[in-house]
Design a protein around this nucleic acid. Sequence first.
DNA 1: ATTTAACCTGAGGCGACCTCAGGATGTCAA
DNA 2: TTGACATCCTGAGGTCGCCTCAGGTTAAAT
Lengths: 194, 194
Amino acid sequence: MDGKPYIAQRPKRADGRRNYDAILAAARKAFESAGADASLEDIASQAGVAIGTLYRHFPTRASLVEAATRDGLENLVAHAERLTAGPDPLGALVAWMREAVVHFSTFRGLVGILAQSMYDEGTPSHTMCSAMHRSGADLLRAAQAAGRVRPDLTPDELFDLLSGAAWVREQATPDRDGSARFLELVLEGITTRD
Amino acid sequence: MDGKPYIAQRPKRADGRRNYDAILAAARKAFESAGADASLEDIASQAGVAIGTLYRHFPTRASLVEAATRDGLENLVAHAERLTAGPDPLGALVAWMREAVVHFSTFRGLVGILAQSMYDEGTPSHTMCSAMHRSGADLLRAAQAAGRVRPDLTPDELFDLLSGAAWVREQATPDRDGSARFLELVLEGITTRD
DNA sequence: ATTTAACCTGAGGCGACCTCAGGATGTCAA
DNA sequence: TTGACATCCTGAGGTCGCCTCAGGTTAAAT
């Protein structure tokens, strides 16, 4: 039905690159303070650019979100690769899960977009989500092979748990952030008894 | 600063009541199919009423959501009271949790509103949320007293877990609903070892 | 029948989204 | 240096949803 999902790529011309970067910086700031549904017109004007220019580089809101979060998620995947095949599979999985929850809740509304993208190809973030899925699955498999995590837990279920934790974190206020405890309780449920 | 939160109450005049009910019915339908951010103008026109009439009865979206979900949540609270002091505290808690997750995810976006209302007085749904909080806390306390649930779990944490499960359910597609498994894993984490 | 408080209407201002025709400009090759 | 052109930028304007309010209508009480 549709073509491949649009992935924003840095433009060739100097002014294009400048504006692309300015928009991305403004978007990161705006998303962080106003959530994923921040005003695109605000972002454009904050970047010192007309609204049409923003749409030129990022035809959809999802493509802008993808570009704004790509680096962080790439780091997450890279970190997973560094952790894989370490001496402590359970510790690696747990550390990675904690980190993932933080990245998933970079700003309000992100985790919903990622959860959507995880199983919906044709979404800008789908590529990165798939990579994360693989990373998480690898770490999970290793921890299961070591007998430290219940063997019937699937990667999909792992991501449901991570997403839930990230969502709770998203809802948190400065005085009330239950996400750390949330993850702790979840870990209690998925690790095997000593 | 502000007065008490607005709680929609059925109006006195016959035409007022008629419209109030029609709006509520239209809202329930719209929320179910389009989520909590359904168009209020659509709801009004679906109810055969001008937009001003909708705003007369429900000055804010939150007040309409509250009215649309009050019955269901009242049932949930009533059910909790029926379950309290039964012979099987853990079974009661688990049954109630399952039911709560279903109610929290009646439509897309609801659980976020409820999570917000839980700790924010001055919100239409706060009253009902507090009642639920008490209900859940009672069931939790009973299960803990029976030694079936870890004693360090607080009601706030219980609601974080429930909200997380409901959010996962909200994201689910017909072919992929991990919320039941989510709850199962969570229960594994909060129940005491046999 | 009169009165009146409750109720209803819908035009209109606002902000956000998104498109597109027309103009500006960097880049590259000659 | 100078075209030539593809890339890029602009911002007016159509659409939609939110919300208000001045003016008209009506149920219900006396």
